[in-house]
Amino acid sequence: MQRLPESTYAGKGRANDARHPTSGFRGAWSRAFLMRDFGIAVVALLIGLGFSLASPVFLSTYNLLNLLRQTAELGIIAMAMTMLIISGEFDLSVGAIYAVTGVVTGLLAKRFGLEIWAAAICGLASALILGLLNGLLVTTTKINSFIATLSTMMVYRGIAMVLSQGQPISSFQFETAFFDIMGRGKGFGTIPVPIFWMAAWGVLLFLLLHRTAFGVKLYATGDNPEAATLAGIKITQVKRVGFLITSLAAGLAGLVSLGYLKTVTPTQGTGLELEAIAAAVIGGTSMAGGVGSIVGTFIGTFIMAEVRTGLVLLGTDAYIQDAFVGLVIALAVIVNIKLTDRRNAKG
């Protein structure tokens, strides 16, 4: 007796049998088509294709490396944010934590004469403390994390402003390899160091999210918190770690910025939190939790950078660029949803 699965007429059918298709070329194609991040990868390629037709410089190694270097800080934060969003929470304070890390490091090194590496470790520690506070605030009071971190965003930004008295900290006078290692150096002669930081952080988070038990707990917590609790997952602990990872990413990005620019401004990173969330969403992360991937978010970040660089190369008016990026966010998400729907309907 062939029994019709419930989902067939609930309209929720998935491409289940097509996900493990037969071999051969068609098989390879449908396997690629069914890969989690296929839709968004296509979008990234199409945008790249469009810009390279319009401007031959777009596809040059120099431009692509430059593009990745510029987006490294956003990428580091967005990939961590993805993990937090998967667990069902957000962090709007990452931009402020990014500034605090830079300010603390800069002040300790310049004003108090601390060795810059030690100062950097203190900077990261302060980022972790702020992340811990976010996690405690959200999990103990059960305030919606959007609101909770909106308030801590303003508080943390205030800390950066007060510590630096609103002034940029720059002209570090000592000789050190710090700036080269964190931001200015080049690996293999050509590749800017921030790209290595993003890659290393990305691989680390990829393993953590997609390969470890913690990753499964993270998905479960965001997908259905009650069921996760009943299955024995300590969801408050999982979420707190999520906030810590996000703040650590903000701290790391802050150090990369300090290394590259050799300067830190207390207002840096304003709006970074929303760009990070946008990159995650473009990459297929569900705002409701339980769905998302590191690779998807990386591609999401890449798309945003593609559009910005492409528009610059086309000589577009600088004032219109943000508007274009906004449009692309909407378009990318629409295309991704459509492709995902078609993939799901293919079952």
């Binding site: 390969r211 470890t212 038990a213 913690f214 499964v216 707990k217 479960a220 299955a231 997952i233």
Partner: peptide, 15 residues
Amino acid sequence: YIARTAQRADLLFKD
């Protein structure tokens, strides 16, 4: 498998 995963140390591979 989720109840077993829940008992598994965070940093172990997910089996």
